[in-house]
Every structure is written in C-alpha cells, then in structure tokens.
Design a binder for these strands. Structure first.
Length: 527
RNA sequence: GCCCCUGUAGUGAAACGGAUAUCACGACAGGCUUCGAACCUGUUAUUGGGGGUUCAAAUCCCUCCGGGGGCACCA
C-alpha cells in the first residue's frame, strides 16, 4: 500500500530526493504522510509550505488519493480512497496464506544462511541462547516470506578444546582426576557422569572421545528442547568435525589466506592480517603449539558456506561474543561472502526473589532455557522475547514469568484471532461478492487500513532484521480488531453490510494468522 | 584505558531525524439483554543532567552521571 503512495509522489517530483512515507498514529495527519517538501526546500530554494502546496495540487490533479492536505509547516498528508482499501481487502481474501509474502525481482533475491544458537554441546542452553533462537527462527520465516532462499543453521562445535574440557570435567566429576578451575561444574555434568559411570571409566585415558560421546548426548537433548518444545527449527546441524575438518575446509581457508598474502609468522604463531579488514588487531590462526585456533575453523566454516552458494550470511551471537565480530567479518570478506551480518543480542539478566541471579555456565549457576520453556507456555515465551529489540538489555523476572505466563500480551493477540474464528463459525463462509463500499464506520476503516499495512511491515522487518516490528504490528491489529468487535456487528445488521463485515473479519483472521505464524506463535481456534 | 549496547509513566518495553511520544502489566474510576468480558472506555511521562547541530532531536554530535557486556595463541 505504501508503495502506491511513494509511486504517486515520484510521479510528481522530478528531483532524485529520497521519498519517505510514514503512517501517522493519528488519522488527522492522514493515512500516509511525507516530509518530502522539507527535503526539496533546499534544492528548490523555496519555502517548504510553498512546495508542499504545489505538490498537493499536482497530486490532486493526478487523483491518486481521496484527499491531500498540507499541514504543520510543510507535511503533505494523504488519505486513501475507499476504493483502494476495497481493492486491498479483496486481495487479502484472494491471497489468503500468501498475503504479506512477496516475490522479489531476481536481482533482489538472495540465498541466505542464517545461523543461530550454535551453543557448544557441553551442557544445557542459556536464556540468551533461547533469545537468539527465537530471533533467528522468526527472522528466517520473514526472509522466506519476502522471497529469499533461506537455510537455518546450527553450527556444532563438536571437536577441540571445549569437548576435551567436557571429557575432563566428567572424569573429575567421577573423581578419576583432580578438579580444575576451568572444568564445567554444573549438576548436569555430575548427572551424566554418574549415569554413564562405566563409559567414563572406559575412556579415562581418552578425554576427547569421552567428551565427544557426552557432547552427542547433550546435542540431542538440545535438539529436543529447541525443535520440539520451543518450535525453533533448523535445516542443518553443521558439524565442525564432519563438515569442516573432515572436508579440509580449514586447510582450504589457510591456503586461500596464504595465496592472498595475508598470512605471516610472529612469536612462533601464524597470524592473519585481519587489520586490513577493519579489525583492530591481527588474529592468530595457528598457535605456537601448532594447534589451529577456533578462528581458523570458523573461517573454514565461512568458506564452506560460501562454497555451497550462499551470498548472504547472518549470524546471531550473544553479547559475550562481541569481541569476535570484527575478526569474523574480516574472514567473511576474505572468503568472499557478499553480504555478512553479525547480530548481537544483548544480555538477559535474571531476577529471582528481587535479586539478580549471576549466571555462569561453567560454574553451573544458571537457569536453563529448557527450564523456562517447561515453566512458561511456548507461545508466551516466544511472543515475550520477540516483542522487544535485540539491543535491549532484559531484566527477566523468573518469579513473575512463572506466575503470570510472562504477563505478556500474546493472549490478547490470540484472543483476537479466536474471536474472528468464532464469528466465522457462526456466520459461515463469505457468499457472493460482498459490497465493501458499505464498510464506512471508523472501526471498519481503521481495521481495513491496518490490514493493508501488513506487507509493508513484513518487508521492513526483513530489511532491518526487526522481528519485533512484526510483533508490535500484530498487537496493533489485535487492538483494532477488538475495537471493531466491540462496536460493530456481523449478525443482527442489514444483510449486505453483515456480509461485507464478515469478509472484513475473514481478512482479519487471515492477516492475524499470517503474522502470528511468521512469529512462530500458534493460532488456537479456542482458548 | 579502549570498544559495543543501554538509561523513556509505578514496572517492563515501542517509536525510518518529523507533527499531540505508543503498547502491555499494575493501580484507580466506569462498561456484558445480541458474534465468548482472556474484551472495551477513561486517568497515570516536560524521554538521566547540561551544552550543540537542524525548519524539526527520545533519536545525531560533545560532555557529565548511572547500568550491562567485551578487549586471549578460549569461543
């Protein structure tokens, strides 16, 4: 819908200025509004008001809007005609599930790999893992909706230091070796070690193998939590051992770096000149002990991704990985990934009994994501995390979460959907060709306009990675639907109006469902 | 010390540099003879302090104060 407003403005503005169109909160400022007169003021050397007035006349002559007004000191406010809303309403009813999706032109279509969670399989998931998981899952849905090809990846660090440490931690838990500071201490370590006591004993001399066995178990338990309980999906669990090392991508990355003259030796270690790519210091590829670093393995991973044909890579990391961003971006640039994005989600601070709970996976003092998802309904957890920006530092009150299902408005949105279903069940399907011109009340029209915004919201969310905008939109739409429901009726009104309203309710059901589905939130028929 | 994020109603959050700062929860005051009240209608903020840029600042710049997280040959 907004595209239409932009097109109309472009047709009357010869200059190449960026045209921004907003949807004001308040109807008195139009259905759409633009500040373009301010932008043109300098270019044309005229006052914004004068420019706005002349644009207004041109727009009126063109007849794209029902009404055009100049307001304030130069805003141009535009009101959609009722007909254009009717056309959009018909479009929703026609496209149904597909409403809100787009087909990008070939040039804009991308092959995106989005990586999220990727927690080491050395124990249960943290809340931050969950936050990133929800974000990644919904973002993947949104990318697909706007026409990109998407792979959802969980990268599994199933070899190397951490796995060895896990093995050693298990041995220590069984008292076979002395405990050390760096070992994993959580209950889950002891538990696994006790349950698999004979295995632990058998591999006492092979901590790597033992760690790998335990890691396989933890991974399957992570999969269960994530896929079954949280509804977070993956297309591929990429194994560092099998997909990267076994296929020599680490070596291939090293060869590539050398060929490009970006590798040098110093202090007995091998370094990559990441400073050529906006990093603040160079990074080690091979330690002086001769071991490849994780960074080299990750570079291999990025190379593998590029070789499999992805032009865009998006990775979601927790705040503790902030220091890793510039080096991974350097690696992405070198291996030739066209678009590489790193999204950092901010911390989730846990409050319990009014006090902060310090979380440490290594020390084992943390609330797991699994615990959360067992306590709080999946839909509530998802909605709650997905309605706020990933940049926000969250204070998460666990007591409150348990008591009130996060006190979150997911039920508000779901209930709006339930109401649409209730009406449709009672009134039956839309018959014939309803006369949408009868939808004239404020509630009717506000709802129609909100529905028409949906495709714009999805597209913007895809462009800016802002999942929470979709969540907010669903809430706004729910509110307008509840308002509509309160004031207007489908049954007990004049028959043709009732039919038009029924169509509007059906359209609302479609958009609510499409929106909630993008967010991975279910749409119950009853509550 | 350097870098990233952040400070908005009692609480948790929202707001491409735009016009009267949005939502939920809580509190208080109201609302069911018709499609389920898990709903609706009111009241509740000079956006941490101070400068600056701009026609326009919660948003950008400087500075001060307060939170969180990074600065490994760990990831």
């Amino acid at each position: 819908m907004r595209e239409m407003a932009i097109e109309a403005l472009k047709s009357v503005i010869p200059e190449a200025v960026p045209i921004e169109v907003t949807v004001p909160d308040n109807d008195t400022h139009g259905h759409y509004s633009t500040n373009v007169a301010f932008r043109l003021a300098k270019l044309r050397g005229a006052a914004p008001i004068a420019i706005a007035e002349s644009l207004k006349h041109e727009l009126e002559a063109r007849g794209s809007f029902a009404r055009v007004e100049v307001a304030g000191n130069g805003f141009i406010n535009m009101w959609l005609s009722h007909e254009s809303l009717e056309v959009e309403l018909a479009d929703i009813l026609k496209k149904k599930k597909a409403y809100g999706t787009s087909t990008l032109p070939r040039t804009g279509r991308r092959k995106i790999q989005i990586e999220y969670i990727s927690a080491n399989p050395t124990g249960p998931l943290t809340l931050a893992n969950g936050r990133g998981g929800f974000l990644g899952d919904a973002l993947a849905n949104i990318f697909e909706a706007v026409g990109h090809t998407v792979e959802r990846e969980y990268y599994v660090n199933d070899t190397g230091n951490q796995v060895r440490t896990l093995g050693l931690s298990l041995l220590a838990a069984q008292g076979l070796i002395p405990d050390e500071e760096k070992f994993y201490k959580g209950e889950y370590v002891k538990e696994w070690a006790h349950k698999n006591a004979s295995l632990v004993k058998r591999y006492a001399k092979k901590p790597e193998t033992l760690g790998a066995r335990a890691a396989a178990y933890f991974l399957s338990s992570i999969k269960k939590t994530v896929e079954k309980k949280a509804g977070i999906h993956f297309d591929r669990y990429t194994s560092e051992a099998r997909h990267i090392h076994a296929k020599h991508f680490t070596d291939k990355a090293m060869t590539m770096f050398k060929k490009k003259g970006l590798v040098y030796e110093s202090e007995g270690a091998v370094w990559l000149k990441t400073t050529d790519f906006h990093d603040d210091k160079d990074r080690v590829l091979i330690t002086k002990e001769g071991a490849p670093t994780y960074f080299l393995a990750d570079a291999g991973h990025y190379l593998e991704t590029e070789k499999r044909g992805f032009d865009t890579k998006l990775i979601i990391l927790g705040p503790d990985h902030y220091g890793y961003v510039s080096r991974i971006q350097a690696a992405a640039a070198i291996v030739g990934i066209e678009h590489s994005h790193v999204l950092i989600t901010q911390a989730v601070r846990l409050i319990q009994g009014g006090e902060e709970v310090k979380m440490s996976k290594r020390k084992g003092t943390f609330v797991t994501f699994e615990e959360l998802i067992d306590e709080v309904p999946k839909d509530a957890a998802r909605f709650f995390f997905q309605m706020i920006s990933p940049d926000t530092h969250m204070d998460f009150d666990l007591d409150l979460a348990k008591e009130h299902s996060l006190k979150n408005p997911v039920f508000y949105a779901q209930y709006a959907y339930v109401r649409t279903r209730g009406i449709i069940k009672k009134a039956g399907a839309v018959k014939g060709k309803p006369d949408f011109s009868l939808l004239e009340s404020d509630e009717d029209m506000r709802l129609m306009r909100k529905l028409a915004e949906f495709p714009d919201v999805v597209r913007d969310a895809a462009d800016t990675f802002a999942v929470h905008h979709v969540t907010r939109y669903v809430l706004e739409l729910s509110k307008l639907f509840h308002n509509f429901y309160e004031k207007e009726h489908v049954s007990g009104v004049e028959e043709r109006l009732g039919m038009a309203r029924l169509a509007l309710v059906s359209a609302s059901a479609i958009v609510l469902k499409n929106g909630l589905t993008l967010l991975g939130v279910s749409t119950p028929e009853k509550m």
